[in-house]
């Protein structure tokens, strides 16, 4: 299964959700389907996409938040799984694309290659109740539908092959992405007195 296929399957389902992606291939593959104002691409600070998602979900209980994460980024911030479990926002779905590789930085094997480290098991042991694993696009689709319907914090670990796009680049300056993302959110809330 390719991450790009998974993201393409997700795309029609996330037009009304706040989406935070990690850097590199994951961000590019979503962007290439067509940027939307509710997408935020964290092009650096590896590990913190999940923390941004947690901050969004906890402060915007009426919104639904999706984080598109990767094994390399999660391994840089494993504590986030425990923090998520502790606060358990119901409106957060954390999707971890596990390609077993630091693809965007040269393709070195990550610690999850060959199943040595099991991120789903780590998430479960961190205290996250709803953790599913997907090895095929059908399983991924089912896991996403279940997570979106669940109304509880959910983690999906999707095993994908270590392939990415053949190009990188966005017509979107990084602060511009942040400004527009924030403005999109504020436009959906009633003004605070």
């Amino acid at each position: 299964m390719k991450r790009a296929e998974c993201i393409a399957m997700l795309y029609p389902e996330i037009d009304d959700r706040l989406v935070v992606t990690i850097m590199g291939a994951c961000a590019q593959e979503l962007y290439d389907l067509g940027h939307r104002e509710n997408f935020f691409y964290l092009q650096h600070a590896m590990g913190l996409a999940s923390s941004i998602g947690l901050g969004l979900a906890m402060h915007l209980p009426a919104e639904r938040v999706v984080v598109l994460d990767g094994d390399g980024s999660v391994l840089m911030n494993l504590g986030t799984l425990a923090t998520m479990a502790r606060y358990r926002p119901k409106n957060l779905v954390h999707i971890i694309f596990d390609n077993g590789s630091l693809l965007s930085t040269g393709g070195f094997d990550s610690h999850t290659t060959s199943g040595i480290t099991d991120l789903a098991a780590i998430a479960k042991a961190a205290g996250l109740e709803h953790v599913s694993r997907a090895d095929t696009i059908m399983e991924f689709g089912e896991a996403v539908l279940a997570a979106f319907a669940r109304n509880d914090l959910s983690v999906i670990v999707a095993k994908v092959s270590a392939v990415g796009p053949n190009h990188y680049g966005m017509d979107l300056a990084l602060p511009e992405n942040a400004f527009r993302f924030r403005r999109w959110i504020s436009g959906r809330r009633p003004a605070k007195s």
């Binding site: 600070a45 590990g47 913190l48 941004i52 947690l54 901050g55 906890m58 924030r182 809330r189």
Partner: peptide, 14 residues
């Protein structure tokens, strides 16, 4: 470092 991400999420949330 997690708190930097959470703070960014809070900021985006207003």
């Amino acid at each position: 470092e997690e708190a930097i991400g959470i703070a960014a999420g809070a900021y985006f949330a207003g």
